[in-house]
């Protein structure tokens, strides 16, 4: 469970940092009047939707951290046979990076009000994300054809399970991206569009990050890395 505990530590650190700005030491019975205006104790100035997405991403992060924990625990048992990571995944990673870059461009453009670039960015991001998903499916096909079936070894099971869940999250993101694209083409108010695009970009970057972590996990680098850390510690 060490991965998820480290993850929680990060969350707790973040929560602690936030709480430390909330005057938890104050004696509220001594304070009358509108103190919120004085010290800015009300909600954050960030848009609520972004905070909502942030909280959601923390939950998603926790989910994948737990999978990683389970992965390491299961890996320690004797029947584990690592599977060869398909070459294709490198290409897929590249495609997903492109997708993130495209959305980043769209989000910069949205801030500047360049609607044409926004549309281009959104379209590119959508297509590359789709390409990523197709690439993942092809990687699955390749593995099954080579005899690495879902149930034949836990390493395979984890591979399909984790990549599958990540893919589902991308699919969900595509729904959001579709709605944003509808805004972009139907001429939604620029403020609204900008927020939408920024939310998509945030989600995409996060899923890219999760993908990189998963990739490291499934290809065994994460385990090697942890081994090295452990040796350094002892």
């Amino acid at each position: 469970m060490s991965v998820v505990l480290v993850f929680l530590l990060v969350i707790i650190g973040f929560a602690g940092w936030w709480l430390s700005h909330q005057r938890l030491m104050a004696k509220p019975w001594l304070e009358q009047g509108v103190i919120g205006d004085v010290v800015g104790m009300e909600g954050s100035t960030l848009p609520t939707a972004k905070i909502g997405l942030g909280v959601f991403l923390a939950v998603v992060g926790c989910l994948f951290a737990l999978f990683a924990s389970a992965y390491f625990m299961r890996m320690a048992l004797s029947d584990w046979r690592p599977l060869p990571v398909p070459r294709l995944l490198w290409l897929n990673t590249g495609v997903l990076v492109l997708s993130s870059i495209a959305l980043q461009c769209a989000s910069v453009a949205a801030r500047k009000g360049q609607i044409g670039t926004v549309r281009l960015g959104l379209a590119t991001a959508g297509l590359t994300a789709l390409a990523f998903l197709i690439g993942q499916l092809m990687a699955w096909r390749e593995l099954t054809e080579d005899g690495y079936l879902l149930a034949s070894n836990p390493a395979n099971s984890f591979f399909y399970l984790i990549t599958g869940l990540h893919g589902l999250h991308i699919l969900g993101g595509l729904v959001g991206l579709g709605r944003t694209a509808a805004h972009a083409w139907n001429g939604a108010p620029p403020e609204r569009l900008r927020l939408s695009v920024e939310l998509c970009a945030m989600y995409w970057h996060f899923l890219l990050f999760v993908w990189l972590a998963i990739f490291a996990l499934l290809s065994g680098w994460a385990a090697t890395f942890i081994d090295i850390c452990r040796q350094l510690l002892t």
């Binding site: 909330q22 005057r23 104050a26 104790m41 909600g43 609520t48």
Partner: peptide
């Protein structure tokens, strides 16, 4: 639950009226 939970958390974070600090 996750859908509902997001609401409860973010409403406490962002929905508080003027003067409603955490310690109130």
């Amino acid at each position: 639950f996750t859908m509902g939970g997001l609401n409860y958390v973010v409403t406490v974070l962002q929905g508080r009226t003027r003067g409603m600090t955490l310690m109130r």
